[in-house]
Simulated scan of single mutants.
Amino acid sequence: MAGGERTERVAASPEACFALLLDFERYRTWQSTVRRCVVLERDDAGRGRVVETEIDLKVRRARYVLRYHYDPPRRIWWDYVEGDVRSISGEYRFDPVGEDATDVTYAVDVELGFAVPGRVARAVAERSLATALRELRVALEA
């Protein structure tokens, strides 16, 4: 299993962070690793409940389906349903800092389920954490 946790401060409210991450259909426009993202099922509030995503891991492409859970506007987390990886779980947390900033924490644990040396899996996970938060910050501050 590979994964980790990272926090980055962004110049946006927790509500803006939460809203950006709810817009699954736009992920391809600001997340460089996402090749496809489709909402398969929505909850009573219209938010994506079951979402299929295909990403480019550089070592290969992977498809997975996640079930999302929400605690607006403070937290979004997910559970693995199915796909090319063995398991994936994680969360985004949004902690306000003053009136115009948020500490965004991204945590993820992934078990790829295909042959990749442990150090490569850890490097992919670390790069994924850093890239996801950087791209989130850029999208929010644009």
Rank of each mutant, 00 (worst) to 15 (best):
V65I: 13
Y92G: 02
A19D: 14
V51R: 00
R26E: 12
V39H: 04
L66A: 14
L66H: 08
H69G: 11
V65C: 06
R63D: 08
D103E: 14
P72R: 04
E99R: 10
L21R: 07
R60G: 05
S89Y: 06
G46M: 09
L22D: 13
I55Y: 01
R67G: 00
L22E: 14
V81D: 09
D44T: 10
R35W: 03
D56H: 05
E25R: 11
Y92V: 08
D23E: 15
R28G: 11
R93P: 00
T53S: 11
R67D: 06
W78D: 04
R42I: 04
D103C: 06
F94G: 00
R86D: 12
D79W: 03
Y92R: 07
G46N: 10
T29P: 00
G46S: 05
P72E: 13
I88W: 03
H69C: 05
L40P: 02
T33S: 13
R49M: 08
D103S: 10
E91I: 02
Y64M: 07
G83Q: 10
T53N: 08
L66R: 12
L57F: 04
Y68S: 13
G90V: 02
V65Q: 12
P73I: 09
V97K: 04
A62N: 00
V97N: 00
L20F: 07
R61K: 14
W78C: 05
E91V: 01
Y64N: 03
D23I: 01
D56M: 03
P73T: 09
R74T: 12
V97G: 01
D43F: 05
V65T: 14
L21T: 06
C37Q: 08
D23A: 13
Y27N: 07
Y80F: 15
V104N: 01
T53R: 03
A101T: 00
H69R: 15
T53I: 11
A45M: 07
G83N: 08
V85L: 15
D95R: 14
G90F: 07
C37M: 05
R75A: 11
R86M: 03
Q31S: 12
V104P: 01
R42A: 12
Y27P: 05
R67E: 15
R75I: 06
W30P: 04
R28D: 09
F18Y: 15
D79S: 13
V97L: 13
V34P: 09
R86L: 11
P96K: 02
T102Y: 03
V34D: 03
R42Q: 13
R61P: 04
G98L: 06
G46K: 04
P72T: 09
S87Q: 06
W78R: 04
P73Q: 11
T102K: 02
R28V: 15
C37I: 02
E54I: 11
C37S: 14
R42M: 04
R74M: 07
R49C: 05
A101I: 01
D71Q: 15
D95S: 13
S89I: 06
D56T: 08
L66N: 11
G83H: 09
R60K: 15
E99D: 15
T102M: 06
V39S: 08
G83S: 06
V81K: 02
R35L: 15
I88G: 01
R26Y: 05
L21K: 02
V97R: 12
D56A: 09
W78F: 15
R75H: 01
V50T: 07
G90Y: 03
R42C: 09
R74H: 14
Y27I: 10
W77M: 02
W77C: 02
V104D: 00
L40M: 10
L40W: 04
